[in-house]
Simulated assay, not measured.
Amino acid sequence: MSDLEVCESVILVGMPGAGKSTLGVMLAKALAKDFVDTDLLIQLKAHATLQEVLDAEGYLALRQLEEETLLDCDFENHIVATGGSAVYSEKGMAHLKTYGPVVYLDVSLEELRRRIKDYDSRGIAKRPDQSFESLFEERCELYKQYADITVACTGLTLEDTLASVIQKLSERTAQHQR
């Protein structure tokens, strides 16, 4: 059993390709918590992939659906991998923060470019004319705004990133117990 509070959740935010889902599963195993990927919840609610929602209704409809999905969920004792655009919803982020700390997985633009091969078909909620660089700059400010913990992930293996997240969560818990 970790020294993290039993019912506290951990909310992962970051760009598409930052590793939220992959790391989230590993973190859930390490901390004995449930795992949820909000992108999957959105797809279940929409009965469509994120890209299908974007193609049919546009990026603002996808962001609205994401907010509704976040607000409808109870995330107690979970590792929550959010969609990259969750930070556009003040209400959604306020709701998530009631369950536990927000951890920003900070990955460089260059690293994301190496990781993401399907940028145009991945279901990323962005303006049609928006470049990946512009989206990166816009979202990074929001991730920093909501983050309780930031983990610099560029150049780290998944195992090293996991260890860094757990260490920072433990440090945060120790500070709050003082």
Rank of each mutant, 00 (worst) to 15 (best):
L54T: 01
K117V: 06
T98Q: 15
K126R: 05
A86S: 10
K91E: 11
I42Q: 03
F75G: 09
K117E: 10
K97A: 15
E57R: 11
I42L: 06
E76S: 12
R113I: 11
Q130F: 03
D120R: 09
D106F: 08
Y59Q: 11
E52C: 05
I42M: 01
K117F: 12
A48N: 06
I42N: 06
V36D: 00
E90M: 04
M93W: 13
D120F: 14
D55A: 15
K45S: 01
H78I: 04
M93G: 09
L71H: 04
L44K: 11
V103T: 11
I79Q: 01
K117S: 14
E90C: 04
T38C: 03
K45L: 00
R127K: 05
K91W: 08
G123P: 12
A81G: 01
S121Y: 12
E57D: 13
Y99F: 15
A81T: 00
F132R: 08
L40Q: 09
Q43A: 09
I79H: 04
S89C: 04
L70Y: 11
V107C: 11
L70V: 11
S89I: 07
L40T: 09
I79C: 01
Q64D: 07
V107Y: 05
A56S: 13
A94C: 13
L112Q: 10
R63L: 04
S89D: 09
L60H: 06
F75Q: 03
Y119R: 13
T49N: 09
D74V: 11
T69V: 02
R115Y: 02
L71M: 14
R127S: 07
N77S: 09
C73Q: 15
L70W: 10
E67R: 03
R127T: 08
D74I: 05
T49S: 12
S121F: 12
S108L: 08
D129C: 02
E66T: 02
A61H: 07
I116W: 13
C73H: 12
